[in-house]
Computed example of a mutant assay.
Amino acid sequence: MSEEKKIPMHLAIILDGNGRWAKKRGLPRNFGHLKGCDNVEPVCKAAFDLGIKYVTMYAFSTENWKRPQSEVDELMKLLAKYMKDAMKLSVKHNMRVRIIGDKTGLSDELNKLITELEELSKDFTGLQFQIAINYGGRDEIRRAFKNILIKAEKDGVSYSELAENISEELISKNLDTADIPDPDLMIRTSGEQRISNYMIWQLAYTEYFFTDTLWPDFSKKDLEEAIEFYSGRERRFGGLKKG
């Protein structure tokens, strides 16, 4: 990739197509999830090598609990295994890992692993990697407003004062991504063309790239194609074209 290419600072990815990848091969859906999990490290490495600083991946949504219980159980086991693997990977790659989403809905075991992983990697300065687990964009905004109201009551701020001072900046500061820049580019694999309740506040001015490639097959070449697309976009954020 040429040096002239614009590189997004923050890349968001919806990992889609694991089940279809497995079905095409006559394999159980959970094997597809396992294969998709194996693809996380090479894509993160490729992103960092290309100059991307932040990567956020959608691993398990608030809606995914509606899937068959057997599949949910296997996904939870896979996520727990990945938290353990990520401890080694974070040290290997100097990678900071954070989990976004409602952790109160996760098991004690998974929360313990998340805490250990986040504490271990908190000072690492390489790729800043966020994993969205039990995450929903609407739920995140709901939780943000809940936190704002609780803090206002604790500080003795009246609702009228709060209403007068509430701002987009205040809401952003109470989201799971408070100290992380909004994504510049969002990629969704497998051909679906919607954001499925993913970072709906943060993606307001993000460029969207949809690919038919299933997540387990998504490679550095696919990532470069997405960046090529992003590089050709002129981001005006509501303003007029320059020149």
Rank of each mutant, 00 (worst) to 15 (best):
L175F: 10
H93P: 01
L106C: 09
K103I: 12
K66H: 02
C37A: 13
I150K: 15
I99T: 03
T56S: 14
A178R: 12
R29I: 08
K84E: 13
R29T: 07
K23N: 11
S172V: 11
M1P: 07
V55H: 03
D108Q: 12
G239S: 14
K24S: 14
D212T: 12
I14C: 01
L79C: 14
S158E: 11
I100E: 03
N174P: 09
L75A: 05
N30T: 05
A226L: 09
P8L: 12
V43D: 05
L15G: 00
A46Q: 12
R143I: 02
L149R: 05
K103E: 10
K146R: 13
E71C: 09
Q202H: 13
F129P: 04
H93K: 07
I100G: 02
L185Y: 04
L110F: 06
G156N: 11
D176Y: 15
L50S: 14
A12W: 06
D222H: 07
N111D: 00
K53C: 09
R98A: 02
I13W: 01
S219D: 11
R233W: 13
E74Q: 11
R67N: 04
P216L: 06
L214H: 05
R236Q: 11
A152T: 08
T56H: 05
E168S: 14
K23F: 08
Y208S: 02
E140Y: 07
R194P: 03
E224I: 13
S158Q: 06
K88I: 08
S190A: 15
G238S: 11
Q130R: 10
K6V: 04
I7F: 03
E119C: 05
R20F: 07
I133D: 00
N165M: 10
P42I: 11
A59V: 14
D139K: 12
M76R: 04
N134V: 00
K53Y: 09
A22L: 04
D49Q: 15
M199T: 03
L75E: 05
F60E: 11
V97H: 01
D179C: 02
L175P: 02
I100H: 03
K88E: 13
E153T: 10
S196H: 03
K242G: 04
E116S: 08
R20K: 14
K241E: 12
P183R: 03
R233L: 13
L34P: 00
D16G: 06
